[in-house]
Design a protein around this nucleic acid. Structure first.
Lengths: 358, 358
DNA sequence: GTGAAAGCGCTAACAG
DNA sequence: CTGTTAGCGCTTTCAC
């Protein structure tokens, strides 16, 4: 159970602090300047001569000085920390957005504190009523979450920037994909290969409550068919829950239908698309000879399954959210780019799609 | 791109803080006591009469008072925040441990700040040299990471408790599975079904550098065979990288061998086991009639694939780590349980294993 | 049990 | 460009 170390800690001394914590005044003394100058030199805000800045930097390095973020935050009102709220961690999309945000924040010297709402209602309430309000974060990023007006306005009242990723939040700046266009592209790929009986596995109502993502994607699919003059067929739509097993079930139904079996499937997520591929196999149908499958995401397993998909680059979305935040948080920044560019997406053709049979 | 809200924030006023931030003195005034009493009443440390405590709680509630964690941390030296360092988020095991830790911490009123090292060497250095030292965390949990002596000792010097999960760290208290026993159990399950040509897909050297996990698992496999009097066969071992594609490749080699094809496979992870199942299918072999497969993890997809596996409950490991930490961080705690209990594991039999053929 | 007062370690005016 | 001087909002001795 343990690797030879005892649980008690610190080893022997019970000093509250570690031993070698040098403070700003030690650095000041060593560099022969005032603490104010040290602060300015190290933080970069305010005028300091290059010579002084160098001396200070040296002194700080020699002493292994690291600012106390608490003292700094208390004095300045800025924490250099952002809160990230997610519904769950065990999802490729959320995890990827967080990874992107985390590395972008790290680069800026910011910390990321994570609030995972998997637990349920109580957790959510305490996060918004308590945790996010204790002056520990400068801003919050909400991923794949629809916030209530109350939640938005309490953050709002604290003067904390809030940015949404993966779904629009009423009255809040959000990064969202053009879901209509994405699904249209996937569908057009299939139409271009000569398919006309194209099924769609979309999200079910439950998901729609949050973001209308299922609806948007479905309308992209329908628009593509309409433009191509292909009649819509209710029987070719199946709702599912975005997971692999869900996609499997839905595809089984679609592909098992005795009449007019679809020759292609557009799934609203790669996991559902992979489930569809497995369902086809279990029915003895081959992909892509008998049925073509296209997903949306470019999930880590997509390549392995040879899945044709529309990539949506979630890591980049996380980075993007951070960049947008920085424009608000760091007025000094040279505003490298507006946050107003559309999120990129891209059709990646692999081996799960081919010319329509016959 | 945006949902109707402009990027500028806060809406109009440029006040650095929000509007309605009540401080401890307002609470004190309203409750008719001193700020010191409010602090004691709300934090629970120090003597306060029940009557006073109640009055204070009411006043605080009415004012929506939330302590400023920075001010509190600066004054007390405790941050009520723990740092969690992981190699990556997009892994079932890591994400699950974090989820467990996060919810346990939330329950204790602690925040979790995340340090994801996916980026590479530089990132890691700055996390350990800078981020973890700025007095923002009371302790750190390292998941699936081998820390260098330096890294351990700098945390150590700060007096910060450190606990490892998913691998032992030299000289540091760690939660680890009994990997030998786990793999032995999986192998014995197969032996009990009459299999004797049992292959093992383990981790490759790269992973062994960190935790000797591959080696431990392999020796559990070998011990089980030895005890059953089954001779070892080098040809029945294949290293892989713990991923689904990796398991697929390895299983293809194993199951494609012209002579003495194994009738069963023990994989060191569920993803590799699932890869093995897919490989068997692609070779036209059926699972479990022709070949049995058992994994280790109880990954979220295990049930869908009918995979027999040894569950290792990573969420619980995260919670467990937090409990151990709390014993150090909160002396007042009634020490409910020693951290010294072994981590639980459990064989879950599904449909990927059956009696050996013939 | 409760209040008064002295900081926690840094930043931000303000002078110079 | 740099130093002086006040705090940031709490917690915590120490008296009472």
């Amino acid at each position: 159970m343990r690797s030879g170390a005892s649980l008690s800690w610190p080893p022997a001394t019970t000093s509250t602090q570690g031993v070698l914590m040098s403070g700003i005044d030690e650095v000041a003394r060593r560099a022969g300047v005032s603490t104010a100058t040290v602060s300015r030199a190290l933080s970069g805000r305010g005028y300091v001569s290059d010579a002084t800045r160098l001396k200070v930097a040296e002194a700080a390095a020699e002493l292994d000085y690291v600012v106390s973020s608490n003292a700094s935050s208390l004095a300045s009102g800025r924490t250099r920390n952002v809160g990230v709220v997610v519904p769950s961690l065990n999802h490729w999309f959320f995890a990827s957005v967080i990874e992107g945000a985390e590395s972008a924040l790290l680069r800026q010297g910011y910390d990321l504190t994570l609030y995972n709402l998997t637990g349920g209602g109580d957790e959510r309430k305490s996060v918004f009523d308590h945790f996010l309000l204790r002056q520990r974060v400068d801003a919050v990023i909400a991923i794949g979450l629809e916030l209530t007006e109350e939640e938005v306005s309490s953050l709002h009242a604290m003067g904390k920037p809030l940015i949404g990723v993966g779904g629009p939040i009423a009255g809040v700046f959000s990064l969202i994909m053009d879901d209509v266009a994405v699904t249209r592209l996937a569908t057009e790929h299939l139409l271009g290969l000569g398919h006309t009986r194209i099924a769609h596995i979309g999200g079910d109502k439950e998901f729609d409550l949050d973001f209308h993502l299922p609806t948007s994607r479905r309308s992209g699919y329908e628009a593509a068919l309409r433009d191509a003059g292909v009649p819509l067929d209710e029987a070719l739509f199946r709702p599912a829950d975005f997971t692999l097993p869900g996609g499997y079930e839905a595809a089984k139904q679609l592909l098992g239908s005795p009449h007019n079996r679809p020759t292609a499937i557009v799934a609203s997520s790669d996991e559902m698309a992979i489930g569809s591929i497995l369902a086809a196999r279990d029915l003895g149908l081959s992909v892509p000879q008998d049925v073509s499958v296209v997903g949306i995401d470019d999930h880590q397993l997509a390549a392995f399954f040879g899945l044709t998909t529309v990539a949506q680059f979630p890591r980049r979305q996380g980075e993007h959210a951070v960049e947008a935040l920085m424009q608000l948080l760091e007025p000094a920044a040279d505003a490298p780019q507006s946050a107003d560019v559309p999120l990129p997406y891209e059709l990646i053709v692999r081996s799960s799609t081919a010319r329509a049979p016959q």
